[in-house]
Design a protein around this nucleic acid. Structure first.
Lengths: 160, 160
DNA sequence: ACTATGATGTTATAATATAGCGTTTTCGAG
DNA sequence: CTCGAAAACGCTATATTATAACATCATAGT
């Protein structure tokens, strides 16, 4: 859960602004609105779902095509992550940090789309990279997506 | 590369037949054709691409909807894997083995869709599962999909 | 042979995503 | 300040991936 209240959201958006400037681009109004939509969603949502969130919860009128373009921009500026596993998007949970991070590992609840972004321990990632090289491949992305069930959503068929 | 020739393909299909029977289901003609299509593709393909492969390379006339249904069946019978990362399907590379395997780790070339199915070392998977539990999640699937570039497809932007 | 079940055919439609191009905005050079 | 280029955005069309729903066909057990 990133944005617990309006104030926190504002702070994240301000920091995102800075982060963009540092990368030589700008967080325009629309882009900020899309990011705000992701923050209030507080879970992974598809581009189309995000237009609904922006309209229904924030009153922002955005077209899906614009949302796609903006999501791509935000991803390039390390403000959002695209989850290939579910074709959904989520705000980066580290926007307000300054320091470098380990490669992220996403725990994605298959039922409710809640996502926790944890850090992959370096030795794990090294081991994965090693197995990859050994097989004649080169890592393309250094994040892992793990399909899970969160504690609020019981795993189907699990007796426990 | 699973099926290097027609003979090997036949052997895999025969084994798949057995595997289905053991699970109380049947590998019908159509299902066998879809699996054969995946074997000759020798890489990850989408359901629609697979209908093209079956038609153009094997002369089998299959509708995409049937292919989806059959892929679902084959997946339930552990004969194919669905790669969530790319929305493509690939034949399981262990059909002709009898023994149990470790959770698979798929190395997927983003450029050419070549896939190697390697085994995730147990300690790695345990470490991932541990981090998952610690965050209040339960693993839903025990396979990892790793986006890579294979040696035939140079990584874009890589100077080396 | 009859019937229940599973398998397949068929049509429609939903959900996700990209292409292409015209218009508007922004912003620095002159 | 204004002009022109580049970036951002609006808009339409269309490609790609996937599911739903129901009809028909095949097959096995009685």
């Amino acid at each position: 859960m990133i944005a617990i209240n309006q104030q926190a959201t504002k702070r994240v958006l301000a920091q995102a602004q800075q982060q963009c400037l540092a990368l030589g681009s700008k967080l325009t109004t629309k882009r900020s609105q899309v990011l705000e939509g992701l923050l209030v969603a507080a879970k992974a949502v598809s581009a189309y779902e995000l237009t609904d969130v922006c309209r229904d919860k924030l009153g922002y009128d955005l077209l899906p095509m614009s949302v796609y373009r903006i999501l791509e921009f935000l991803e390039n500026n390390q403000l959002v992550h695209r989850l290939n596993t579910s074709n959904k998007y989520i705000a980066c949970s580290h926007i307000t940090c300054d320091h470098e991070h380990q490669p992220p590992q996403f725990l994605i609840c298959k039922t409710c789309d809640r996502v926790e972004e944890v850090e992959v321990p370096t030795p794990i990632m090294e081991s994965v990279a090693k197995a990859t090289r050994k097989a004649g491949f080169t890592l393309a992305s250094s994040h892992l997506e793990i399909e899970c069930y969160c504690n609020d959503c019981d795993a189907p068929g699990a007796a426990i």
